[in-house]
Simulated scan of single mutants.
Amino acid sequence: MNIEQNHIEKHNDSLLTSHQRKLNFLKEDWSHVDLESVIQKLVDFQIAIPSWALGTGGTRFGRFAITGGEPRTIEEKIEDVGLLHALNGASGAISLHIPWDIPQNAGSLKTLASSYGLKFDAMNSNTFQDQAGSAHSYKFGSLQNVNKEVRKQAIEHNIEVIKHGVALGSDALTVWLADGSCFPGQLNFRKAFENTLESLEEIYAALPSDWKMFVEYKAFE
Rank of each mutant, 00 (worst) to 15 (best):
I3E: 01
E4F: 02
E4C: 00
Q5I: 03
I8Q: 04
S14W: 11
L15R: 13
T17Q: 15
S18T: 13
H19K: 07
L23S: 07
F25T: 13
E28N: 12
E28L: 12
W30A: 04
S31Q: 10
H32V: 04
V33L: 15
L35R: 10
L35A: 08
V38G: 07
Q40S: 06
Q40F: 02
K41Y: 03
L42K: 07
D44G: 00
I49H: 07
S51N: 06
L54G: 08
G55K: 06
T56S: 14
G57K: 09
G58Q: 05
G58D: 03
T59Y: 01
F61P: 00
G62D: 08
R63A: 13
A65I: 04
T67V: 10
E70K: 10
R72D: 06
E75A: 15
E76C: 01
K77M: 09
D80R: 15
V81W: 06
L83K: 05
L84C: 15
H85F: 12
A86T: 05
L87C: 11
G89P: 11
A90N: 15
A90M: 13
A93Q: 11
L96I: 03
H97T: 10
H97G: 00
H97S: 06
I98P: 00
P99I: 07
W100A: 07
W100E: 10
I102S: 05
P103K: 10
Q104G: 13
Q104Y: 02
L109T: 04
K110A: 09
L112R: 09
A113I: 11
Y116E: 12
Y116R: 13
G117E: 08
F120Q: 05
A122G: 02
M123Y: 02
S125F: 08
N126C: 14
F128P: 00
D130R: 04
G133K: 11
S134V: 07
S134N: 14
S134P: 00
A135I: 02
S137G: 05
K139S: 07
S142W: 05
L143V: 14
Q144E: 12
Q144H: 14
N145Y: 05
N145C: 08
V146C: 01
V146L: 09
K148E: 14
K148Y: 09
V150D: 13
K152V: 07
Q153V: 13
Q153W: 11
N158Y: 10
E160S: 09
V161P: 01
I162M: 01
H164V: 09
L168N: 05
G169S: 07
L173F: 03
L173R: 02
L177C: 02
A178G: 15
A178Y: 11
A178M: 10
A178I: 04
D179I: 06
S181F: 12
F183D: 12
Q186P: 06
N188L: 04
K191G: 00
F193T: 08
F193Q: 08
E194K: 12
N195Q: 09
L197T: 09
E198G: 00
S199M: 02
L200W: 02
L200T: 03
E202M: 14
I203R: 03
I203L: 04
Y204I: 00
A205W: 00
A205D: 12
A206Q: 08
L207W: 04
L207V: 08
S209K: 15
S209M: 12
K212N: 04
K212M: 02
V215S: 00
K218H: 11
